Simulated assay, not measured.
Amino acid sequence: MSLYITYVLVGLAIAMPVGAITVEMTKQGLKNGFIHGWAVGLGGLTVDVMLIFTLSIGLASILALPIIQMPMWLIGAGFLVYLGIDSIKNADHDITLSGEKVTKSFFSSFKNGLLVAISPGNLVFWVNVFGVVLAKSYADGTANSFYIVAAGILSGILLHDLLLLTIISITRKALNRNMIKWLTVAAGVLLLSFACYFVYEFIIGIQQLL
C-alpha cells in the first residue's frame, strides 16, 4: 500500500508542471466546462495506458530506439500546430458560458487529448520510469510492483486532472465570453510554442545521430 501511495504522489508531481496536455485541458475546461476538460485528460490517460501495456509485454527496448522516437517529435509537433492554430482561429467559437448548453461533442475533446499525448516526451518518460521498475520487479521474481507503480502514477495524474478542472469550473463562472476568447488565444500560442520545442528536439536528435 505504501508503494501505491508513494507513486500516487509521484504521478501528482509529474502532472503539476504546465505541459501541452494541461494547456489543452484548461482551454476546453474554460470553453465548455468540466466534462470536456475531463475528456481531454481521459484522452491523454488512454495513451498512457497503451504505453504501459506495450512496456508490460516487453516492447520497452523497441520504444527506446531513436529511430522510433525521432519521427514522433515531428508527429507530435504537427498535432500541436494543428491544435494551436485551431485554438487561435476558432477562439470565439464553441464558447459555452456557465449554465449554457454545450454543443461541442465529448469525443472531439477526447480526440484532442489523444493527439496532444502522442509525443516522444511522454514516451521517454514511461520507458524510463517503467523500464526500471519492470526490470527490478522481474529481478525480484514478481511483476506485481510494476502494476502497483502504474496504478499509482495513473491515479496521481487522475487526481491532478480532477483538482485542476474543479478549480477551472469554479473560475469560469466569473469569466465572460471575451475573457475566455483571449485565454483560448493564449492557449493556442502556448501549444504552438510546445510544437516549436518538439521541432527543436527533433533537430537536436538528428544532429546527434549524424
Rank of each mutant, 00 (worst) to 15 (best):
G37N: 11
L51E: 07
I170C: 06
E24S: 03
A64K: 10
L154G: 03
I62K: 13
E201K: 12
G113Q: 05
Y147S: 04
F194I: 01
F110K: 07
L134W: 01
I167M: 02
I85G: 01
G113A: 09
D86C: 01
S193V: 08
L97K: 06
G156K: 03
I62S: 11
G44Q: 02
G78K: 00
T142L: 00
A13C: 10
S137W: 07
L158V: 11
I52E: 01
L134M: 03
Y138T: 01
L154A: 03
A77T: 07
A20R: 01
V133Y: 04
H160I: 11
G84N: 00
L42Y: 15
L97A: 05
V10T: 11
W182Y: 14
G43K: 04
G188M: 06
L51Q: 12
L12Y: 14
C196G: 08
S98D: 02
I168H: 05
V40P: 15
L55E: 09
S56V: 04
L183V: 07
Y197C: 10
I153P: 15
A39P: 14
I118H: 01
M70I: 14
I118T: 01
T54C: 13
L190S: 11
G188R: 02
A187N: 09
L123R: 07
R177D: 05
E100K: 04
E24W: 00
S193N: 09
N122A: 13
V116Y: 02
D92R: 03
A64N: 10
F146G: 00
I167F: 08
S193A: 10
G141P: 05
I167D: 02
N176D: 14
L210E: 13
D48C: 10
I52M: 05
G121P: 10
F106R: 12
T184Q: 13
I157V: 11
K31E: 07
I153R: 08
T22S: 12
L114S: 01
L163C: 12
V18P: 05
S108E: 13
I167H: 06
I148N: 12
Y147M: 05
N178P: 06
N32L: 06
L9V: 11
